[in-house]
Each structure stands twice: as C-alpha cells, then as structure tokens.
Design a protein around this nucleic acid. Sequence first.
RNA 1: CGGGGCGUAGCGCAGCCUGGUAGCGCGCCUGCCUUGGGCGCAGGAGGUCGCAGGUUCGAAUCCUGUCGCCCCGACCA
Length: 475
Amino acid sequence: MAEKLLTREKGFSEWYVDVVLKAKLADYSDVKGCMVIRPNGYAIWENMQRVLDKMFKDTGHRNAYFPLLIPESFLRKEAEHVEGFAPQLAVVTHAGGKKLEEAYVIRPTSETIINSMFSRWIQSYRDLPLLLNQWANVMRWEMRTRLFLRTTEFLWQEGHTCHETEKEAEDETLKMLEVYRAFAEDYMAMPVLAGRKSDSEKFAGALRTYSIEAMMQDKKALQAGTSHALGQNFAKAFNTQFQGRDGKQAYVWQSSWGVSTRLIGGLILTHSDDAGFVAPPKLAATHVVIIIIGRTPEERGPVREKAHALAADLKKAGLGVIVDDDESKGPGFKYFEYELQGVCLRVELGPKDLAKEQVVMVRRDTRQKDFVPISQAVAHAEGMLDQMQKDLFAKAKKLRDDSTFEVNSYDELKAKADAGFMLAHWCEDPACEARIKEETAATTRNRPFTLEQKPGACVACGKPSPGRIVFSKAY
RNA sequence: CGGGGCGUAGCGCAGCCUGGUAGCGCGCCUGCCUUGGGCGCAGGAGGUCGCAGGUUCGAAUCCUGUCGCCCCGACCA
C-alpha cells in the first residue's frame, strides 16, 4: 500500500474507487457487476443494521425471512411491477439437472412473494396492522455498476406492512421515511431532504414514493432511502383481504420501504477526503488506534503495558479499539494506513509521553492534535468523537446549503446543472421532466416537505406549477 | 447492445511493432538495522504470459477464434 491515493481534484469517481479499494472496504469479485464486501466495509454495514434494526423494533416491526426465489408468475400479477423490473431480472430456468416447469426469478424486491403469504395470514382486521421487515440480499441486473452505489447483488432491508385504512398505511410510509431521515442525519452525519418523488421516479407498483436525498461532495444527489405507499395494488393482485369491522371483505393497504448497502457509498462520498475514508464515529468500525512508539525493548515494554491498559478502558467505554504493536513498520507508515482506513482517532504513545503521563490524540477529519493527560484520555476521546460527529454533519450541511439554489428560468437551470440542487417550478407534466433530463442531465429528486409550496410557472413550459421541486444530477 | 481499453509473479506495469534464456517497481519470506509522518542494507521465494487452435526449427511476441474484466453511452436503490 505504498502508492498515494488519488485526489478528488484529479478525478472524483476514480478517487471514490480508490478509497473503496485501498481502505479495504470492498473489492471487485470474479462475478461481473458483483462486489465483495470486506471486513472494514461489512463492519460499517453491521453497525448500520444494529442501529436501524433497533429503530424498526422500536416502531413495532418484527423480522422475518422469505425465499430468494420467486415464481415468475408472481411478478406478472402486478402489471406495473413486472414492467418496471423485467429488464433487471435474473431468472433460474434449470435446477436438479432439469428444466423447471416454471422459472424462478431471483428477487429484485419481495412485494410479490411476501403478499402471497400475507394473503394466507390475514383474515380479519384483528390481524392488522401487520408490520414486518426482512434483511436480505437482492439482485437487479444492472447495465452499469459502481462499488456500493449500484451492484448487481446488494444487501438491504425491506419493510412490508399491511393496514386497515389508507390513512394508516400512509402514516406508516411517512413514519419510516422519518426513521431514515433521522438515521441518515444523526448516525451517518449526512443531511438529507425528505420528500415525495415524481410519478416517473416512483416505485413500480406504488401509488406514491417518498425518498431521502443527500448531496455528495461533487454536488450530485444520492437517493439514500425510499418509502412507498403501495395502496391496494399488491393486495388486489394477491387477494390479500380481511374482514372489516363492518363485516365486509376489504383489501389491505400497504407500505414498503428500504435502505441498502448503497448507504456505505453515501458515507464515503459525503465525508471522505484525499487521505482516504472518513467514518462518522457513530458508525465507525474502529474509533481509536493506539500506536506504540519505541526503539528498544526497554522502551517498548512499559509503553505497551500502558497502551493495553488504556485500550481496556476505552473498550469499557464502548469504543472500538486497536493496539498496533507491529515492530516491522514505522509509526509514519501506520499514520497513513489508519487514516486511509478511516479510524476516527489516533493515539500516539511513546517514551516521551510516558514521562509526561500524557498521550497524543489526533482527529482523523481535522487532524486536530491534542496532548492529553492519560488519566483523562477516555473522557477526552469521547469528547473528540462527539465533536467530530457534529462537525461532519455541519460541514456536509454547509456544502449542501451553499450549493442549493432557486432557479427561475430554463437557461438558469441549464447553467447551474452542475452546481448542486436546483429548486425550480415544474408543472408536473412528465414531458417537461423528460425534456429537462434529456437536455441538462438533471432529474427531479423529490419535493421536500420542508420546502414551502407556492404556485409559480414551470421553468420548461411556463404552465402553472404547484411549487418548487429539487432538480439535480444524480447517482 | 453500441464505442474504447486491458488480460504477463499477490498488486502495478515493461517486453509484443522487428519471434530466439520472462523482466522491473511495490508487496511477501529470512537476517541485521531502524521506529514521534510512507526507514535502510543483504539474501531469498514466487509466473503453464486469460484460454484454444494455427504459422514457425522456435510464439508472451505473428494469425484466427474464444472467454473474462474495466471505462464511456441507453435502465435503476
């Protein structure tokens, strides 16, 4: 790992790939379009899972698991759904040495197979609401892939719920979007806009789709999570009915919502720098690395002892800690290596520090260097991590806010297409949306709930618009 | 599917045009030395040159075919 990392200035997307590979987050596999998530990357995913899973449980959901293979006929039952996913399906046609009677598709999402079970499990309004979540892998055959951001197979969670009324289902849809917003901002330190997607951007088979949208360092948007109001579309396709309080049969109202390992890509594109990966403390795999410095065994012995004692204290405080006692590599080498891998804090501990009863503590993102009495090391580390979490969010938010503009003409929209988020009036005609995409490469991201809606004139055609929507280039 | 590129040691590459003992850097192993921002020295291990045919006395190199991957455009979390 002797070569330097590419810089963002020189080529943003090459830099991104370089960070992923050199920080050992993931690697290309021998399967086209598929990646291997390495321990450094998987640890981040495990932390995300742990936090999100608790949030789902706290909002009343339970985990379940459904099959990877879905009978092809299931997908066909919902017309819009199959049309949307058909180009991306991988299909199993042979098994056990024979051609199958009916082919199976490898799940691109699980609405259909889950509904096939819902229809068996639900009889009465007393069975509702039914609130499930599944952690799983899915497969979507993509034309063009990018590590974490878009791969053929990826890991995600998909929530699937059934409700008695449309309002309840809608409330659930928005509640889970809010869970995603809170997770993105409070844990990933990634500011997002929560809002509604345009019809052309909505999930195949949904009535309405909502998303959280983040701005990456190159000012392009990343859709970081989606929540769908499915209405009764799948319920009708699978006959998922219940007997209501009035004694009549009715179709359930449903929601579904998901986030994926794409979030790890979002984390990288939001916080990392020319020295490598930067992880927000709340999701970091390793919070502290203690580097032992010393020339001779006489010097290293006491330092080592102190380092392990400190590591134990830090672990007791709930932090992820590594003690690096490898004598075959110099300290300088290690500084670069751990910065590359995104360890939040570096503690340097050598003979000079022992003499002064102190440690040197360096923050990954700012390289702020503090000399701290050993007795206060744990508290100081916690303080630095806390501040780092806040600062990462503030920095990302400033970039986004500084790169968000109101645009009032088509010329302006064309001119600012690379400058960030553009708030523009749109008449809701898909033709205008398509034309803008064609001519500027910017697409509608969502209509943020926080953006006050006042009527205006569509930037493309001049017809009345109900309010501004976010346009941006996107991943 | 269209356009471009690449397959030679774990990684990055040279060699190919003009056929003749398979090389360099990094990494790895051993020993010594060093350690507060990518140490140094010495020795060493490691490759059916993507695969299959063909031309030739002889192919990494020339020809044909084939497979795979990456990058750029049209679908998507």
